[in-house]
Amino acid sequence: MGVGLCVFVAPEIVVGAVVVIGVVVVAVAIKEELDAYERSASRERGRPKTQTWPSTQQDPSTNRKPEPEGSPLGRDWFPPDPPVSADPRDRRPECTPRRAPHRGGNDPHNKCADQIPQNSFPGWDVLVNGKHFDALQLATRTLWEVKTDNFDTYPPDLREIVLEDQVPKMQAEQALANACGFDFKVAVRSPAHKAALLQLDRNLKVVVMDWC
């Protein structure tokens, strides 16, 4: 049958031919798409793969310590001042005991001072807090003043004068010693002298010398 006679063919035959031709065209298009995909996949398989390693570097923000409250950058925060010792002996350098020559040239007085039991600096005065004390018992942290007055032989008026002079000085010496963490004691020759001192100030620590 010639091409020019196709128009006289039955309609159902023409429709069938069109359907067949359409199916063939679609099939050819699908085949071309599959071939193109296979070529692309082959190229991808031929390329070397790049392995991705897990990063060992951590985000700095994860390890960052929280800043003190009140200043995100710590600009308004300062470390606390070091604590101050509660022991007065550690507060000032003048509280460190230092040897100093005896003063006054009174040999009997100096001898009694040197013979105080457990005297840490025999033959010397002890300078503490600006005051020359007669002796120091370092083991008990006790500073001493020695009074060698013959108090029992004094008349009443002289006794009163001596006491009025000695008691305020002893109170001041006791305050200087206590301010540096030391105890303070006074050594006298007689019980009468001790009793008279304590009558004026019960807070004084007075000892009768039995070594001199």
Rank of each mutant, 00 (worst) to 15 (best):
H109S: 00
E32Q: 12
N63E: 09
S71P: 09
Q57A: 11
A17V: 04
V19W: 01
R103D: 05
C95Q: 02
P66T: 15
D35V: 04
N63F: 12
H102V: 08
R43E: 12
Q115N: 12
S42P: 00
V24I: 13
R75I: 13
G46Y: 02
V25Y: 08
V24P: 00
S40T: 02
S40Y: 07
D107L: 13
K65T: 15
G123L: 02
V15K: 07
R75L: 15
E32N: 11
R47H: 11
G123H: 02
D87H: 10
S40E: 14
G105I: 03
D90L: 14
T96W: 12
P68V: 15
K31T: 01
S120C: 05
F121Y: 15
R43T: 06
C112Y: 05
P11L: 09
G22T: 06
S71A: 14
R98P: 00
G22L: 12
E12C: 04
P83A: 11
T56G: 15
Q57K: 13
G70N: 08
D59P: 05
P80F: 06
K31D: 04
A100S: 07
N106S: 10
D76T: 04
T50C: 06
K31H: 02
V26P: 04
C112M: 13
R64E: 10
L73Q: 05
R89V: 02
C95F: 15
P54R: 12
G105R: 09
T96Y: 12
S40V: 03
S61R: 14
T62C: 04
G46A: 15
D107H: 06
V25E: 04
P88Y: 08
P72N: 11
V25P: 00
T56W: 14
R91D: 12
R89S: 15
H109Q: 08
G105A: 06
I116H: 00
S85Q: 11
P122H: 01
L73A: 04
L34W: 07
Q118M: 13
K65M: 12
Q118W: 11
W124Q: 04
A17T: 05
V25T: 10
F121D: 11
S85P: 07
L34G: 03
A29D: 14
L73C: 05
R99M: 12
W124Y: 14
E67D: 09
D35N: 15
S85E: 10
I13C: 03
G16Q: 02
C112V: 15
E12D: 09
R75N: 11
I21C: 00
D35G: 06
D87P: 02
P93F: 01
F78P: 00
P97T: 13
E44M: 11
P82T: 02
N119D: 08
V28S: 07
I116R: 01
G46T: 04
V20C: 11
